[in-house]
């Protein structure tokens, strides 16, 4: 019941946001401009991303985060498990493409990287 209701809302908001996007975005291939409504980067997949993501939560939840493709996929799985997110189906790769393209980790966010590629071995006496 709860699930059906939220899906109903989601579809409603999706339709709404889709209309707005079409109205706002005249040039959707420009990749360094933001959608004034959501603050998300303009892209040909923006409409799809909005339909799948910002129906339920703020676009800021995307724009303030940086994850790898795997990291974003984990967020989707977590939302599906705990937040009633639906199966994105064929849209998922396109959504992940978009998230990876614009919201990947910065090359180096800190002044010192984590130690990487550690080859663990048992230290013998």
């Amino acid at each position: 019941m709860k699930k059906g209701l939220s899906l109903f809302f989601a579809i409603g908001i999706w339709l709404f946001s889709q209309c707005k996007t079409v109205q706002n975005s005249t040039n959707q291939n420009v990749s360094d401009e933001k959608d004034p409504e959501s603050g998300l980067m303009l892209d040909q997949n923006l409409m799809l991303v909005k339909s799948q993501c910002t129906a339920c939560h703020s676009a800021k939840l995307i724009t303030m985060n940086r994850f790898t493709r795997t990291g974003w996929k984990e967020k989707i799985v977590w939302m599906q498990k705990t937040q009633n997110l639906w199966d994105l189906g064929e849209s998922e790769p396109a959504v992940l493409d978009y998230l990876e393209k614009y919201y990947s980790p910065e090359p180096q966010a800190s002044r010192r990287k984590n130690l990487e590629d550690i080859e663990w071995y048992k230290l013998e006496d």
Partner: peptide, 8 residues
């Protein structure tokens, strides 16, 4: 020494 990655 040790090489990075030691488990003990």
């Amino acid at each position: 020494s040790p090489k990075s990655g030691a488990m003990l």
